[in-house]
Computed example of a mutant assay.
Amino acid sequence: MKNTVIKFGLYGFLLAIVLFLSGLYFGKGMDFSTQEVVGYLTMVVSLLFIFFGIKHFRDNINSGEVTLTKGLLIGILISIFTASGIAIADFIYTSVINPDFFTDYVAMMREQGHTEEIPDWCSGFMAFIMFITVLIIGLIISLISALILQRKN
């Protein structure tokens, strides 16, 4: 199980970093709504390695069997890798590539009529929020994948 988690976790980690930074860097001219959609697509595509990791474990490592619990555990562990990749990419983007991101985002929110207090978040906190967001989506994908792939002989 360990090798499967590391292998598919690293695939998700690398794909997350590449897609997330590419989407943010090349999407600088896009509005924030479009960037948000691209960001969520990046998360979901990177988290698809959960399904393939559970399937690989079931078919190639564990003699065609995987329980719901074991599949869920594999999926969550792979999610941690992917969430880490997106959090690192988000931190790099908001602290190195586009350090004015928060200022621009707050200005856009005010232009759209949001008058409530918008907190002044740092890059580290936003990276943590991204990590948690990806982990929650990963949990959902893990549960769905484990339900689909569970098999006892």
Rank of each mutant, 00 (worst) to 15 (best):
L19W: 06
T115A: 13
M43P: 00
I50N: 12
F52P: 03
I137T: 13
Y105M: 15
M126L: 11
K28A: 11
K55Q: 14
I129T: 10
A87T: 07
A127W: 04
F51M: 04
C122F: 12
A87S: 14
F57R: 00
G29I: 02
V38P: 05
M108T: 12
S79C: 08
L77C: 12
Q35V: 07
F57P: 08
S46E: 10
I97T: 09
N62K: 07
K152A: 05
I61Q: 08
G12K: 09
I141F: 11
S142R: 05
G71I: 03
S145H: 03
I140R: 00
A87Q: 09
F26T: 06
W121K: 13
C122V: 13
T67Q: 01
L15Q: 14
F20L: 12
E117R: 06
Q112K: 14
Q112D: 06
D90A: 13
V18K: 13
G29S: 13
A83Y: 04
S84P: 01
N153V: 11
N60Q: 12
T42N: 15
F20C: 06
T82R: 10
I76C: 04
I54W: 06
S22L: 03
K70L: 14
G75V: 10
K70S: 11
V96C: 01
T4C: 03
I76F: 13
I118H: 10
S46K: 10
Y105E: 12
S145L: 03
I137N: 05
S22E: 02
M109R: 14
T103D: 14
L48S: 12
K152L: 13
I88L: 15
I129W: 01
K2W: 07
G23H: 07
A83T: 08
Q150H: 06
I50D: 05
I136H: 01
Q35A: 09
M109H: 11
F49Q: 07
S123D: 13
E117A: 12
H114M: 15
Q150P: 04
I129C: 03
R151K: 14
I76E: 00
T69H: 04
G39L: 07
F32N: 09
D120T: 09
L10A: 01
I78C: 02
V106Q: 14
T133E: 11
Y11D: 08
N98R: 15
F91L: 15
I118N: 10
F8N: 05
F51C: 03
F131M: 08
L41K: 04
F13G: 09
D100H: 08
G39E: 12
V38H: 02
N62I: 11
A87W: 08
L149S: 03
A107G: 08
G39W: 05
S145K: 01
F13S: 09
I141N: 02
I6W: 01
G85K: 10
I61S: 02
M1C: 02
I76T: 04
I50K: 02
R151T: 01
E65A: 14
V134T: 15
I132L: 13
G64W: 09
I78W: 03
K55W: 09
H56Q: 11
G9Q: 02
D59M: 05
I132T: 07
V38R: 03
P99G: 07
I118F: 10
G113P: 04
Y105D: 10
F101M: 13
V44K: 03
F32C: 02
D100S: 15
G64Q: 08
V37W: 00
F128R: 04
R58H: 07
L139G: 15
E36Y: 10
